[in-house]
Write a protein that binds this DNA or RNA. Structure first.
Length: 671
DNA sequence: GGTAACTGGGTTTTT
DNA sequence: CCCAGTTACC
């Protein structure tokens, strides 16, 4: 073991080395924040490959596609693999599932041209069906379609019956239990009939493949090693998948930290991590507690807020020299908070900390609204991650759905969306037209004339052009040409629809340019749906790598990342912890873990902000005059680790001049 | 009967 | 900013 060439083990400490060089028995790595678990995992992949495990017999399951790509590239670099040599398989559960479902579509009774629905489209489908089922009643308010999809998804991901899910997580929906059950049955039927798969279906179908008598063992035997990152955030389906992949636990490596479980709302349960030791009594447990990231004063706060009930009982310690204590900045109101953050960023910048080394992490995407304005005014460039994704922008969705129609003309949701873009076609006419277009055969052309005839006179010309254009696009084979043709179809429609169409069309030009470089358009569209670009800049590739900008991110999207200086606004009850989260019994605990994740992103400096006066905030209004800690995260232990800074409210002085000195004169306009 | 345009109220987190 | 509800027009 000591004569290995290469430097894959350079700088690893004992615990990391133990994890990296562990044999084939199941391995559980309990890794506190910032303890170099990515390094350990990467080194393990490198070690395995160096020991002769073929790259394509290693599967790395991560939380985002970027994390997988990152780790695989680093592992290849560690062992000095030639570019172009085989790389391990890696990706998110959903992305890998998509590959298998596509490859085994026939076995699953699916047409080869199925479509992946994003949650928004699943909600659209739910809406469509609700109409058919007389569930659009207005006398008793029904849950919104997004809520319906959430409840449905929770049932699937936790494998619990609807009755139970409603009782625990959606009590206000309980009166609608029967209707919802009916609706959900129709929902699954419709997805089946239309070859539409939502995110949950991908997991369900992959699990079904793995559970099959012959197919399952065959698929599992394709891998010698399966490594799963962020295991505290897996749900029941994912646990089943992992167990089917490694039925004996041999060659299984799992990394996680139950104090960082922040996806309960998505059906994840940190108990899955705790249960592992029982599932595989012979599993080895390695604990990573040495923090390479943060200075000790930041870890003191982290340890104070780290949930006590965590399984691992990890206590982080650092060998990094002392730095400044984290600050709790009490400011007058949210605008003052925004100014304070901008001041802080520019001060650090003056001291030589690049903007890229500084981040503003928020609980909810809109918490950064005021800071964004402040940064714009001061011309500080920033990029925002999380919140609204690029794909969720209406025009991008218009494009993706229209492009999907070329390969799956059964996709009613896509037709519905495309038809509604035409002037004069609303929900009702679109529904009628979908029924006409809805083909029994794969060939659409015979019905097109009927559809045009059925459209209102004002829409006929454009609709006819749209359908002609799609026919042309279908005739093209190269993905780039197909995409270009789809854009040509959309161009006039988007010009009519959006006042800012020019900007939106520019986005789509970029998207089409990217499409020109792929060889499988449907697969590319599915990948785009599963892991959309996190910010508009992502699409442009990275021509501006030297560009410096502050990162604004939701805490969820910041998981696994780190910055030298971190600013945490809105640390105040109602905002963070979010009052929405407090509705569920386990909500506060999850908020606390989220706070722990946020705090441990900082390497050198950490600033928490508490606006004392927050309009529109119930809780904050009550507390306006009190000097209690602003957030219930900040108990005595946490306060002891903090330095409180009182920020005097800075009033902008408004110069007052004589009343007659300022006049408004419009007469020159009327000449 | 259906669409477009406007108004007012509410806003978590994501594969 | 997105949704539901209302109203005026086709």
């Amino acid at each position: 073991m000591f004569d290995l060439p290469g430097a894959w083990d350079e700088g690893l400490d004992d615990a990391q080395l133990e994890a990296a060089t562990h044999g084939d028995a199941p391995l559980i790595v309990l890794a506190g924040a910032g303890t170099g678990k990515t390094r350990a995992l990467t080194s393990r992949v490198a070690w395995l490959m160096e020991r002769g495990v073929a790259a394509d017999r290693i599967l790395l399951l991560t939380f985002t596609r970027r994390a997988a790509d990152d780790m695989l590239a680093r592992a290849s670099a560690l062992i000095g693999a030639e570019p172009g040599t085989r790389r391990p398989r890696g990706g998110t559960f959903h992305a890998i599932a998509h590959r298998y479902v596509a490859a085994y579509a026939e076995s699953l009774g699916l047409p080869g041209t199925f479509t992946v629905l994003d949650p928004g489209e699943a909600a659209d489908l739910m809406d469509l069906l609700r109409g058919h089922h007389g569930l659009a009643r207005t006398d008793v308010r029904m849950p919104r379609s997004a809520t319906l999809v959430e409840a449905y998804s929770r049932c699937i991901n936790t494998q619990r019956p609807l009755r139970e899910v409603l009782a625990v997580d959606f009590p206000w929906c309980e009166p609608h239990l029967e209707e919802m059950a009916d609706l959900f049955r129709a929902f699954t039927d419709r997805k089946r009939a239309g070859a539409l798969l939502d995110f949950d279906d991908l997991l369900l179908y992959w699990r079904a493949l793995l559970a099959h008598e012959q197919l399952g063992p065959h698929l599992a035997s394709q891998f010698d090693h399966v490594l799963v990152d962020e295991y505290q955030d897996v749900n029941t389906l994912q646990v089943d998948i992992v167990r089917s992949l490694r039925p004996e636990g041999l060659g299984l490596t799992v990394v996680g930290d139950d104090a960082q479980a922040i996806y309960e709302f998505r059906g994840a349960d940190a108990r899955h991590l705790q249960d592992l030791a029982e599932t595989w009594p012979d599993a080895s447990v390695v604990r990573l507690e040495r923090n390479f990231r943060s200075r000790q004063p930041i870890l003191d706060l982290a340890n104070a807020v780290r949930p006590a009930e965590n399984n691992a009982q990890l206590r982080l310690h650092s060998d990094r020299p002392d730095g400044p204590r984290p600050r709790l900045v009490r400011c007058h109101d949210a605008p003052a908070e925004a100014r304070a953050i901008a001041d802080g960023i520019l001060e650090s910048f003056e001291r030589g900390v690049t903007l890229r080394e500084q981040a503003i992490l928020v609980r909810a995407a809109h918490h950064s609204d005021l800071v964004e304005i402040e940064l714009s005014i001061r011309r500080v460039p920033y990029r925002k991650f999380g919140g609204l994704r690029f794909l969720e922008a209406a025009h991008v969705k218009d494009f993706v759905t229209a492009a999907r129609l070329l390969d799956n003309p059964h996709d009613d949701i896509a037709w519905f969306r495309l038809l509604r873009l035409h002037q004069g076609i609303g929900p009702a006419r679109a529904r009628a037209l979908v029924a006409i277009l809805h083909p029994e055969t794969d060939d659409l052309l015979p019905h097109w004339a009927d559809a045009v005839a059925a459209a209102p006179a004002a829409a006929r010309t454009t609709l006819s052009a749209t359908l002609d254009g799609l026919a042309v696009a279908r005739g093209r084979t190269r993905p780039g040409e197909r995409a270009e043709m789809v854009l040509q179809v959309l161009r006039p429609l988007l010009m009519m629809r959006y006042p800012d169409a020019a900007m939106r069309l520019e986005d789509l030009e970029r998207l089409v340019a990217t499409a020109a470089a792929v060889d499988d358009l449907p697969a590319w569209l599915a990948e785009l749906t599963l892991d959309p670009p996190r910010s508009t800049g992502d699409l442009a590739g990275s021509p501006h790598l030297d560009e410096d900008y502050v990162v604004i991110s939701t805490i969820h999207s910041a998981k696994g990342l780190e910055w030298s200086v971190v600013h945490l606004p809105h640390v105040i009850d109602g905002a963070f912890p979010s009052d929405m989260a407090l509705k569920s019994p386990t909500g506060l605990a999850e908020e606390r873990r989220l706070f722990y994740v946020a705090v441990t992103r900082a390497r050198d400096e950490l600033n928490l902000y508490t606006p004392l006066r927050m309009p529109h905030h119930r809780r904050a209004r009550d507390d306006r005059h009190s000097f209690a800690p602003a957030s219930r995260f900040l108990d005595d232990g946490a306060m002891a680790a903090l330095k409180v800074v009182e920020l005097n409210p800075v009033r902008h002085q408004i110069p007052v001049v004589a009343a007659t000195a300022v006049t408004v004169d419009l007469t020159s306009l009327w000449h």
